[in-house]
């Protein structure tokens, strides 16, 4: 039986208590909404992209600890990257979180790797991936992303 402490690791609880880049910014160039119709999770991602670089990444919304921590970590790891670099990390993140994959970490993902244990709680994987899909949608100029 997976232990609850593997899901609610200190790093995740800490990000949940003090989410980074949280709240709607004053200005942004790209925005998308992530909706998990099944559980009602809703996250808004706001990006400021200039010259192909992610100058600022913010998110807002009320969500569970896993979704909050994932979004918070995502904004930290994404800020300053080029869009192409981000897309590479997003691909790695999807592979990390694929419940059929054996991957336990990718160096490029840094602290985001702590989310890997969510895989042991299949019903919660979408909590962790929602904001990433919303950010991907924002970059592509789509209004929203859904995980269901």
């Amino acid at each position: 039986m997976p232990d609850l402490n593997q899901l609610y690791k200190q790093a995740i609880l800490e990000h949940n208590r003090n989410p980074r880049n949280f709240g709607k910014p004053d200005e942004w160039s790209h925005h998308a909404t992530g909706l998990n119709a099944l559980c009602g999770d809703l996250v808004e991602v706001y990006l400021n992209i200039e010259g192909g670089v992610l100058r600022a990444v913010h998110y807002a919304g009320e969500s569970c600890a896993i979704a909050t921590a994932s979004a918070s970590m995502m904004t930290e790891i994404s800020t300053g990257l080029s869009v192409a670099q981000w897309q590479h990390k997003f691909e790695l993140f999807k592979r990390l979180m694929d419940k059929n994959s054996q991957h336990q970490s990718f160096d490029e993902l840094g602290q985001v790797n702590t989310l890997v244990t969510v895989k042991k709680f299949p019903s919660r994987i979408k909590s962790a991936t929602l904001c990433w899909h919303a950010m991907d949608a924002a970059i592509q100029g789509l209004p929203d992303a859904t995980t269901e």
Partner: peptide, 19 residues
Amino acid sequence: HAHDIGTIIDHYGVAVRTG
């Protein structure tokens, strides 16, 4: 958050709905 409650109390055998 409700989903976190649901996951945690499931570990004590308690089934509730969240959402």
